[in-house]
Design a protein around this nucleic acid. Sequence first.
DNA 1: AAGAATAGCGTGCGCGACGCACGCAATCTG
DNA 2: CAGATTGCGTGCGTCGCGCACGCTATTCTT
Lengths: 149, 149
Amino acid sequence: MPNDVGHEIADALGTLLRRGTRARLYARLTDGLGEAVDETTYPVLSGLARTGPCSAADLAGEIGLDRSGVTRRATRLEEAGLLRREPDPDDRRATLLALTETGQQTVKTTRQRLAAFIEASLASWPPEEAQSFARQLHRFVTTGPFAES
Amino acid sequence: MPNDVGHEIADALGTLLRRGTRARLYARLTDGLGEAVDETTYPVLSGLARTGPCSAADLAGEIGLDRSGVTRRATRLEEAGLLRREPDPDDRRATLLALTETGQQTVKTTRQRLAAFIEASLASWPPEEAQSFARQLHRFVTTGPFAES
DNA sequence: AAGAATAGCGTGCGCGACGCACGCAATCTG
DNA sequence: CAGATTGCGTGCGTCGCGCACGCTATTCTT
């Protein structure tokens, strides 16, 4: 493998991990979806969409955050009607976090926006090139130095 | 283009933009390089390595941060001996920020570590596949929805 | 040439996000 | 049935960040 490869990818990852990059992308994705959903609260919605209804502690582990932070974000999202707290029927001290209908819709549209952004910037690529790139990127991220520590 | 492509890349970007991902990667890259260099201060070093000696305001624009933040990080790095403040010979009110020898060395080793991580996770790939992936990723990042807004 | 306007810099201040730890309620254990 | 444990929300301290002020040096204006 030529030496350039590592440095070329390093450059790309560098700009990708910039604070501003993340902020701009989230701003575009959550634009017009209400005051409550932003860069900090969206991971709660997204994680909850992945796991289904679960406790705040489990969700905290899922999105890599302290339990207290999840609780606070959840209250914000609850007040905005995107999330619902329901008592766990099996354990009366536990409360389950679950997405409401609008919450699910919010996650859905956000993901569609991201996919649309990506497809737009890949529009000029040969289809099979885009396809192989997608597979390679997925493989690189899941097997690289980014796995769950 | 198949619909999967957008969603597959979206997944990869999702995990890549996780808060924890960024934190873990920076922790590994800056491990043992001294107390002062961490996730927040490294962009100052890296940006300064790209631009060469320049003012705090210019560097702020470069790394997407407020000027005051650059100043504070610069003082931390200056106390650690990684950065030097020198008066601008052409403008006596201006002070230029410049990397010291150890500062340059720190940036160099950090970049080498990142490149090594990447090459390690690409070690099992066919060389020409890695090469095309690197080019595609670079192109995707520079032309995608991540450009400077 | 002198006073006004501007530019560069550092710092005080408030805001928001985060983690830790405490208290309360419910549950498990012996 | 009492003590230990678990789940949850919240107060507190810390930290990073942007805004705005004051100070100094420079540039503009007349």
